[in-house]
Amino acid sequence: MTRARTRIGFLMPDATFRRVFGQWDLRRLETHPDLELLADRPLDLGQPEDRSVLARAELLITGWGTQRIATETLGKLPELRAIAHSAGTLRPIVDPAVYARGIVVSSAAGANAIPVAEFTMALIVLGAKHAFWAADRIRSGADDADVEAAWPSVGARARTVGVIGASTIGRLVLARLRDMDLEVLLADPTLDPSRAAELGARLVPLEELAGISDIITVHAPSLPSTRGMIDRRLIARMRPGTVLINTARGDLVDQEALADRLEQGDLVALLDVADEEPLPRGARLRRCPNTFLTPHIAGSLGTEVGRLSAHAVDEAIAFATTGAFHDSISARAFALRA
């Protein structure tokens, strides 16, 4: 007896679809014997002809910009059993109603974490050498850029790196730090010292980490309990010369308190995220010394997005053939994720 094929549809903006999904991954979906691809393009619940097609979908592949799937939307998706998200965070699209209905969910957060960890490691090494300060000196026409004379401590050896959050990205960073001659600290309230040691770090309170780290890199999720966690008091604890890296979420850091400290000239901030994106033209951080800003580019870009589409297709095939995702995210895990 032939097994029924799992019906799949894309639900995301056309621009996201064209950016992420190439012909190779579409071909994998179209030709797999256990899958029925309802359309080789994204479908729109606002269009009657697409809505009737999506009403048959058992699995949705979502992505950046997908509309939030809440109770009202679920009413138009009576056959839906699974969501494979071809991006990182699920928070903008998955409402708790999804879990309440028993729909299983997967995310490409692990695939998207790889370039973020790579970007973070580049910032750690360049920040340790105060390379951005030196580049600014040269650009400004200074006759010298004596890094060792300008900063209390320099170099990517025998320094202390503090990692805030053993998230998916945080763990990838911790794994890469093992190859360097550094002391690694970790602040994460969900872990015990033995688990932190397994990850290659010494577990310490956040306040202690802030006070003794040469380089601090933020990888905590943005939750009501973590927003503003890098506050004025914590920033004041940081020693002169400390490098603060944030490739997580802008709202984890009190930006005004950070700007105040940066204007003193003794702290370095390497920031890929901001509380408001894009960072407003008048934002103080744009003018602060020793500040290197990038426009949220640590995640998948260009050729890197191929990992996201490949992950979503792999998950669709896994669900169709086994009834389960490889990287299923439970309701409990969802509550702790960014």
Rank of each mutant, 00 (worst) to 15 (best):
8 I>V: 15
14 D>V: 05
17 F>H: 03
20 V>H: 01
22 G>D: 09
25 D>A: 04
25 D>Q: 13
28 R>F: 01
32 H>C: 01
34 D>V: 00
37 L>R: 02
39 A>R: 02
43 L>G: 06
44 D>H: 10
44 D>S: 09
45 L>S: 02
48 P>M: 07
50 D>S: 02
50 D>L: 03
57 A>L: 05
58 E>Q: 14
58 E>R: 10
65 G>E: 04
67 Q>V: 12
69 I>E: 00
70 A>K: 01
72 E>M: 01
73 T>Y: 01
79 E>Q: 14
82 A>I: 04
82 A>G: 12
85 H>S: 07
90 L>A: 05
91 R>D: 11
91 R>M: 12
93 I>A: 13
93 I>H: 13
94 V>E: 03
96 P>N: 08
102 G>F: 02
103 I>W: 07
104 V>I: 14
105 V>M: 11
108 A>Y: 12
109 A>L: 14
112 N>K: 09
113 A>N: 11
114 I>E: 15
115 P>W: 10
115 P>N: 09
115 P>R: 09
126 L>T: 13
127 G>Q: 10
127 G>D: 11
127 G>F: 12
127 G>C: 11
128 A>E: 05
130 H>T: 09
131 A>P: 04
134 A>W: 04
136 D>T: 07
140 S>I: 03
143 D>H: 10
149 A>W: 06
153 S>K: 15
155 G>N: 01
156 A>Q: 00
158 A>Q: 14
160 T>D: 02
171 R>N: 05
171 R>T: 10
174 L>A: 02
179 D>A: 15
183 E>F: 00
183 E>H: 09
186 L>R: 04
186 L>Y: 05
192 D>V: 12
194 S>C: 06
195 R>Y: 11
195 R>I: 13
196 A>Y: 10
200 G>A: 07
201 A>F: 09
202 R>L: 04
202 R>M: 07
202 R>H: 09
205 P>D: 13
211 G>Y: 04
212 I>F: 00
214 D>A: 07
214 D>P: 08
215 I>M: 06
219 H>E: 02
225 S>E: 13
228 G>S: 05
230 I>W: 01
231 D>L: 00
233 R>G: 12
234 L>S: 00
235 I>M: 02
238 M>T: 08
239 R>F: 04
240 P>E: 00
241 G>K: 04
241 G>F: 05
241 G>Q: 05
243 V>E: 08
244 L>Q: 06
245 I>L: 09
245 I>H: 08
245 I>Y: 06
248 A>I: 10
249 R>K: 07
253 V>C: 10
255 Q>H: 14
256 E>K: 13
258 L>G: 13
261 R>F: 03
261 R>P: 05
266 D>S: 14
267 L>H: 13
271 L>P: 12
272 D>H: 11
273 V>P: 12
274 A>W: 14
275 D>H: 14
278 P>Y: 10
286 R>A: 08
287 R>N: 15
294 T>A: 12
295 P>K: 11
297 I>H: 09
298 A>K: 14
310 A>H: 14
310 A>L: 15
313 V>D: 04
315 E>M: 09
316 A>F: 09
319 F>P: 04
322 T>N: 06
323 G>H: 11
323 G>N: 10
324 A>F: 10
336 L>G: 03
336 L>N: 06
